[in-house]
Simulated assay, not measured.
Amino acid sequence: MGLTATYNLVHDSECRDEDTVELRLIHEDVDKAIIEAYGWRDLLDGPGQTPVVNPTYKTFPLDHGFHETDQGTRYTIGLLARTEIIDRLRQLNHQAYADEVHLGQHKGVTEKKAREKHPDLPPPSPEIIRKRKEELAARGGSDFSEGAEGALF
């Protein structure tokens, strides 16, 4: 049996085959391990048991089960949790981009240009600001580039 046939059974709510049920449980364990790795325990615990790490986050149970998706019925996490996870990943992505721009890792993109294109871009993280200052100190000088922390021009 190939992967397509196997996953057709995983997503079939009528299938109660022991191996298929076990595969669903494995997927739940993988989902939970990933959530744990991101430090989002609030999604694993009951509402209010674990404080959220970011005040903009909302807490929803993962709600594993058979849910309607754009691909049809799938055995997956619920829509509210799925949406929250995507929002959190988007925030992490935006923060990573802001940090990379601050460190000069995007050729030709200054912080000013990045903010013009993405007005809601978060500020660089404190760790990245510290890292940039350490890099500048190690080089024995200032950063004369436009928009940099402590720039002269």
Score class of each variant (00 low, 15 high):
104 G>A: 00
23 L>H: 03
117 K>D: 12
84 E>G: 04
119 P>G: 14
100 E>W: 00
26 I>P: 00
5 A>C: 12
57 Y>M: 08
125 S>D: 12
133 K>R: 13
26 I>K: 09
3 L>H: 11
111 E>F: 06
68 E>D: 10
58 K>I: 07
115 R>H: 12
50 T>M: 12
79 L>N: 08
145 S>D: 15
79 L>M: 08
84 E>D: 03
123 P>D: 13
9 L>I: 02
76 T>S: 07
22 E>N: 12
140 G>Q: 09
49 Q>T: 13
51 P>V: 00
29 D>N: 01
101 V>C: 05
136 L>V: 07
80 L>I: 00
136 L>E: 13
53 V>Q: 14
112 K>T: 12
131 K>P: 00
88 R>M: 03
91 Q>V: 02
13 S>N: 09
153 F>W: 06
75 Y>P: 04
30 V>W: 06
56 T>M: 15
26 I>D: 06
103 L>G: 03
137 A>T: 13
21 V>G: 06
141 G>H: 04
53 V>C: 11
98 A>M: 04
31 D>P: 00
151 A>G: 06
115 R>T: 11
148 A>H: 05
49 Q>V: 14
112 K>V: 12
103 L>D: 14
97 Y>C: 03
98 A>V: 02
120 D>P: 00
143 D>E: 04
87 D>F: 02
46 G>D: 11
115 R>L: 04
102 H>I: 10
80 L>C: 01
121 L>S: 02
120 D>H: 10
124 P>Y: 11
5 A>Q: 14
13 S>E: 10
134 E>H: 14
70 D>Y: 01
88 R>W: 02
3 L>R: 12
90 R>Y: 09
61 P>V: 01
61 P>C: 01
54 N>W: 11
92 L>K: 03
147 G>D: 04
53 V>S: 14
151 A>I: 00
116 E>K: 14
55 P>E: 11
7 Y>Q: 05
71 Q>S: 07
56 T>F: 15
4 T>A: 12
42 D>M: 00
68 E>G: 08
91 Q>C: 05
52 V>D: 10
136 L>I: 11
44 L>I: 04
6 T>R: 09
92 L>I: 02
9 L>H: 06
132 R>N: 14
35 I>H: 01
128 I>Q: 06
33 A>I: 01
79 L>S: 11
95 Q>S: 08
152 L>G: 04
102 H>S: 15
14 E>L: 13
69 T>E: 07
119 P>Y: 15
92 L>G: 05
133 K>N: 07
110 T>A: 08
82 R>W: 03
109 V>Q: 05
100 E>S: 07
122 P>R: 13
152 L>H: 08
52 V>A: 15
107 K>A: 10
120 D>R: 06
121 L>E: 01
53 V>G: 15
45 D>T: 10
79 L>D: 10
55 P>I: 04
54 N>L: 10
150 G>D: 09
52 V>K: 06
15 C>R: 00
57 Y>L: 07
24 R>C: 05
116 E>H: 10
114 A>P: 07
80 L>G: 01
2 G>S: 10
13 S>C: 05
95 Q>D: 03
72 G>M: 11
46 G>P: 01
99 D>V: 13
143 D>C: 11
21 V>R: 11
1 M>G: 09
87 D>N: 07
112 K>Y: 09
58 K>F: 08
148 A>Q: 09
143 D>R: 05
34 I>A: 14
